[in-house]
Amino acid sequence: MPSLARFVPPAKLIDKRVYSPWTEGRLDAMLNGSKVDTLVITGGETDVCVLATVLGAIDRGFRVVVVTDAVCSSADPTHDALMELYRSRFSEQVEAASTAEVLDSWH
């Protein structure tokens, strides 16, 4: 997205071969000691990979922001259910925000 180009670098890319980016250890290794306290999460399969990422981030104590218009799923019903879950059941651990809201508040 052209509007995000100003953030690259310092953005980093980690490829993964499983649902959770935490399982293989590379994300933990990258974040360890980095002073990062917030993860802004986007991606495909809201109800699979995004969910695994969100839950792992919560477990590790990160502030989690799910970008509502930058996640998707191949199944609309479960995507919608997970978006509701993020907003209701996980409202203390997860913030839901649009791309515009994230960009407006980025420091």
Rank of each mutant, 00 (worst) to 15 (best):
T42M: 09
T46K: 04
S98V: 12
L55A: 05
R60S: 02
V94A: 04
L85S: 05
C72D: 13
V48I: 15
V66H: 01
W22D: 07
T38C: 10
D69Q: 11
T23A: 12
S74H: 15
G44S: 06
T78W: 08
I41D: 05
A5P: 01
A57V: 13
A5Y: 07
L85G: 00
G33P: 02
W22V: 00
P9E: 04
V94M: 03
S20T: 14
A96T: 10
S88N: 11
V40C: 12
V8W: 14
T53F: 05
L55K: 05
A96N: 14
T53P: 14
E24I: 00
H79A: 06
P9N: 04
S88Y: 03
V65D: 00
D47F: 01
A96L: 15
V36T: 11
D80Q: 15
T38H: 07
P9T: 09
A75Y: 14
E92L: 08
E84V: 13
P2T: 13
P77G: 11
T68W: 03
E45H: 01
E45K: 10
G43T: 03
G61N: 06
P9G: 10
A70R: 11
V64K: 13
K16I: 03
L39F: 06
D76N: 08
A52S: 13
K35R: 06
D76V: 15
D76F: 09
S91I: 03
V54R: 02
L82W: 14
P9C: 05
Q93H: 09
L55Y: 10
H79T: 06
L13S: 01
L55D: 03
D47L: 01
T99A: 13
D104V: 07
L103V: 07
T23L: 07
S98T: 15
F7S: 06
V8D: 01
V48D: 01
C49R: 09
D59Y: 04
L27C: 03
A57K: 00
E45S: 07
E45M: 12
P21R: 02
S74N: 15
V64Q: 10
Y86Q: 03
R26P: 00
L82C: 12
L31K: 07
I41S: 06
T46Q: 00
A29I: 03
A70M: 14
L85P: 00
S3Q: 10
L4C: 10
P77F: 11
T53K: 15
F90H: 01
R60Q: 02
A96Y: 01
A52H: 04
P21S: 04
H107W: 03
A96Q: 13
Y86P: 01
R89D: 14
E92R: 14
S73G: 09
